[in-house]
Design a protein around this nucleic acid. Structure first.
Lengths: 343, 343
DNA sequence: AATGGTGCTGCATACGTATGCAAGAAAGAC
DNA sequence: GTCTTTCTTGCATACGTATGCAGCACCATT
């Protein structure tokens, strides 16, 4: 009823105790008698009192806010991850402050600076790169950072990714054994570790079977760029009979271009394999063969690592790579005698 | 270099001025001489000082945090809106704290309570309903709330929606004039204003042409439920020749069920119309005829309304309904002589 | 009864910032 | 030159909470 919010002092007065007592009742693990606790909680309930998280953070030095920097939510992988991260963090008493960033360094750095203004306890960056300058700044301020679905060379930050190298290698093997002759790759942005690792793993896999990459284009993680790459590839005399696309989001654009612009059949004329296994990949329209990034486990690892560093139980940064299975669906020819590891 | 962050007092000492002076330099509109400003900014830069937003909020009573409550990000409409909201708010100096909520009232209320703990300046709820109890609580605490893409009867809160009634009516008209005889509706959750308004508008539109709804099922905004509804409808003797689906997300599930489970052609055998116009709807696989919710304008209106109330320039709550065009694509028969309003 | 220990509680202070007030400086008017 | 007005600055205090310290009460042990 009262216009203003009640604070701990109001509660203290109503319960006839000191302000410290109120604080202790709302501090888990503090020393309070049962009687005291009851009195205070009663008064608090009557006034609708709840502790002010911001004021609390001022003195504890903990805001219980995690900053999340993310570049774009168009690729379904990220909203999905955001949702899971938010839920996992909520369970442990933290919440997410969202920052959209353009993918260039400047943009990210500026945004991270704003993040720090909020005294966040930790930072998760989803598929964006940050400058070394800012890295040292975070380290100086003692703010843990975890890179999600991206790593960065020579940077002493925790990173959680899937095993992109191994995953792409699996795909190469799958396509080779499927009898494809001209295998192309539309890569993830070469400026990202994820894009580079997948490309490297894919090349390594082909090499192991003495094959060479027929053609390779940077798709920049963009549906449009990937579609344009397809057009380019199919103008040439020797057209690919298989394409490994750097993520599902681009793969959908590639399939649409193949089917609707070029009138080709997938996988009759061309096999397509993606990477991520976003929910859309399982829809029958696409039914995309793809390598699953186990987002549940990636999120778990991210949260564990981050909170470990925040709460001081884990000391150093770590690089975590999580293995994912190849999900065989209908967009790529299945090799004879292929045994599905998904089961 | 120093382990601890610099505060305004450190800056003051280094610049040889008072702490208040530092504060004023970083407070837009405060009275400071040019010389003072330069000295302070120099010292601040040397120490890497930036004001602590949380401490500031304690005294100003403004956190510059907006709470966003959202139920699910699977429907592409919401990540898209989230991104746009975040960008629009950032421009005006606010940031978004995200809370995922299950769609039942209890879940939402609990989450809103947590939100209030963070002293947010305002709240945006995306397609979730909140209890009257909590509504009055927010009002008592003086925290403005804007409902996004959802309204609530008898609740004195601002709400921004598209004109669902008029939009659905347009669709009814479009289908009738397209010569469809048995027009079905897979509705959005009847517990939501959005779902109800679209259904009511659709029925009204049919009635205007003396038609009746052939069959109507609640799709609960779920892809699976909507697909099951399709199966149900096509088991009957009299099968629909057109379906208006309560949003695009369900419409995709409906189309998949029609094409892949039942082997039907869209729009040859059945016309399908959606609602939202998410990016996916424009992809050639779906090429969905749908009513566009103008998310840019909805976001603008939401931000304007919310900040208007926060900054005290706008007094009362308002209900804003934004008109959207019918985007005619390839999933529904086009009436002879139809003039596209999209242009 | 005296001693030691344990469990609660209140007092006082600190966190980092903004702002009303009054005093000082500068500038203008005559 | 004096007086008034406008700017600029520092002092002191407030925001709402957590926590070290000391004191108190209570109980158990000797």
């Amino acid at each position: 009823m009262s216009a203003e919010k009640a604070n701990s002092l109001d509660v203290a007065r109503r319960a006839g105790v000191s302000q410290s007592a109120v604080s202790r009742v709302f501090t888990p693990g503090a020393s309070v008698s049962k009687k005291m606790s009851e009195r205070v909680l009663k008064a608090a309930a009557e006034l609708g009192y709840r502790p002010n998280v911001l004021a609390r953070s001022l003195i504890t030095g903990r805001s219980r806010i995690i900053g999340l920097v993310v570049a774009y939510l168009e690729n379904q992988f990220y909203p999905d991850a955001l949702e899971k991260l938010s839920n996992a963090l909520k369970k442990r008493g933290y919440h997410i402050l969202v920052f959209m960033a353009s993918n260039d360094r400047e943009g990210v750095d500026q945004v991270m600076q704003e993040l720090l203004d909020y005294q966040v306890d930790g930072i998760i960056t989803a598929s964006v790169a940050i400058s070394n300058d800012l890295t040292t700044r975070c380290k100086a301020a003692g703010i843990p950072v975890v890179l999600f679905n991206r790593d960065q060379d020579g940077v002493k930050l925790s990173a959680v990714t899937s095993d992109n190298y191994a995953g792409a290698k699996k795909i190469a093997d799958f396509l080779v054994r499927g009898g494809h002759r001209r295998i192309a790759h539309i890569a993830g942005w070469a400026g990202s570790s994820t894009g580079r690792d997948r490309q490297a793993g894919f090349r390594a896999g082909l090499k192991q079977s003495s094959r060479k990459l027929h053609v390779c284009v940077d798709g920049m993680y963009s549906r449009e760029v990937a579609a344009a790459a397809v057009h380019q590839m199919f103008k040439k005399r020797w057209k690919p009979d298989a394409i490994f696309v750097g993520n599902d989001h681009m793969a959908f654009g590639v399939m649409d271009a193949l089917r609707y612009d070029l009138g080709l059949d997938v996988p009759g004329d061309v096999s397509v394999v993606g990477y991520d296994d976003v929910p859309l990949a399982a829809w029958p329209t696409y039914d995309l063969t793809t390598l699953r990034q186990p987002s549940n486990r990636m999120v778990e690892a991210t949260v564990d690592t981050l909170l470990g560093q925040i709460e001081g139980t884990a000391g150093q940064y770590k690089k975590i790579r999580i293995d994912g299975p190849l999900i065989v669906r209908g967009t790529a020819r299945i090799p004879d005698g292929w045994v599905d590891e998904g089961l």
